[in-house]
Amino acid sequence: PIGHSLSPLIHGAWIAAAGLDADYRAFEPADAAAFAALVAQGRAGRLRGLNVTAPFKEQALALALADAVSETARACGSANLLIFEAGQVRADSTDGPGLMAALAEQASQLAVRGREVVVLGAGGAARAAVAALIAAGARVGVLNRTRARAGILAEDLGASVVEADALGAAVLVVNALSVPPEIPMSRLRDDAVLMDMTYRPLETAFLAEGRARGLATVDGLAMLIGQARPSFHALFGRDPPAVDVRALALAALGETP
């Protein structure tokens, strides 16, 4: 449910601090036709841009194909950002940069170039993660219950399909599943980093188990804020002002900083 999104809180805080004449609000199109109508409003000049979440990311890319699509969005096969200019729509994906920003913030000791990384899942979130990590030089393995689906993702992006035994060599394990994964923490390296792409709850069972094992963890809120920064720049042509939006988001989640 988009009404639960923290993005309006984050962008709203930046907008207020920057003194911009702007409004960032949640829309909730009921279906594909309603989403297409929302994009049509953008083409007509009534919207500057949209951040897009599931289940409309693939449709967002398709609606922009006739105009302009970034290489990142093409690699991801989806778009989470649409910018409208003079009747045209430009599609991009900031999910991958958000993931890398989260890793830099909460696992600064981690270096993935030339090293083994495992991404759990083979959906849209996993695709964005795999594309970003491959661009960063990692050797990425995709672990998914349905091997055929993992194979399609791996072939598209230059990753490999792996089994659970690959976890033992991974310096990073990213959960891109919508359900808690069942991972034997005892198999992981002592210096492995765990990342979960969801932020509700902030500390998922996956991250809690990793912490209990003594592993470094990266939460989905860091990624949410990380992907919001380039979105804000694309929308307003400037970097976000220095506001502690994580503290605001934690308060909204009922978490302590």
Results as ranks from 00 to 15, higher is better:
163 E>W: 03
240 P>H: 08
32 A>S: 02
202 L>I: 12
9 L>S: 05
218 V>T: 07
135 A>E: 15
99 L>G: 05
185 M>H: 10
109 Q>P: 01
108 S>Y: 03
125 A>T: 12
53 T>L: 12
18 A>F: 05
216 A>P: 04
176 A>P: 08
36 A>H: 01
69 V>E: 05
48 R>K: 06
241 P>R: 12
5 S>Q: 11
131 A>H: 06
187 R>H: 13
166 A>W: 03
6 L>F: 11
252 A>I: 11
151 G>F: 00
165 D>H: 12
244 D>P: 00
204 T>S: 15
25 R>D: 02
61 L>V: 12
218 V>R: 01
110 L>Y: 11
212 A>T: 03
169 A>Q: 15
226 G>Q: 13
233 H>F: 11
125 A>G: 10
215 L>D: 03
119 V>L: 12
132 A>M: 10
147 R>Q: 14
171 V>H: 12
40 A>D: 14
3 G>P: 07
198 T>K: 11
35 F>D: 01
224 L>V: 00
186 S>F: 01
95 D>S: 09
150 A>F: 09
70 S>A: 07
104 A>Q: 13
244 D>E: 02
147 R>P: 02
207 L>N: 09
109 Q>L: 02
134 I>D: 02
70 S>Y: 00
84 F>T: 07
164 A>L: 14
83 I>L: 14
10 I>Y: 00
18 A>L: 07
102 A>V: 04
204 T>R: 06
251 A>M: 07
110 L>C: 11
237 G>N: 12
98 G>S: 09
200 R>A: 13
208 A>K: 14
178 S>P: 12
31 D>R: 09
228 A>V: 13
54 A>Q: 13
153 L>M: 15
18 A>P: 14
135 A>I: 04
170 A>F: 00
179 V>A: 15
226 G>M: 11
50 L>G: 00
64 A>Q: 06
103 L>Y: 08
182 E>P: 04
115 R>F: 03
64 A>N: 08
56 F>W: 07
13 A>H: 13
157 L>S: 01
250 L>F: 11
73 A>F: 05
20 L>R: 07
147 R>V: 13
106 Q>T: 09
80 N>H: 09
111 A>H: 06
212 A>C: 02
49 G>M: 02
115 R>L: 13
82 L>E: 02
8 P>N: 08
206 F>E: 05
188 L>Y: 01
215 L>S: 07
106 Q>R: 15
73 A>S: 12
62 A>D: 14
124 G>M: 05
78 S>Y: 04
206 F>S: 05
92 D>Q: 08
180 P>Q: 10
232 F>N: 06
50 L>D: 00
241 P>N: 10
173 V>E: 03
210 G>S: 06
112 V>L: 13
181 P>Y: 05
182 E>R: 15
234 A>M: 07
251 A>K: 15
56 F>Q: 02
157 L>H: 00
231 S>F: 05
120 L>Q: 03
10 I>C: 02
194 L>S: 00
165 D>V: 13
106 Q>D: 14
176 A>K: 03
152 I>T: 15
74 R>G: 03
128 A>W: 10
249 A>G: 04
118 V>S: 08
75 A>T: 00
234 A>V: 07
128 A>M: 07
85 E>R: 15
162 V>H: 04
209 E>Q: 14
1 P>Q: 06
205 A>V: 12
224 L>Q: 00
79 A>F: 01
157 L>K: 01
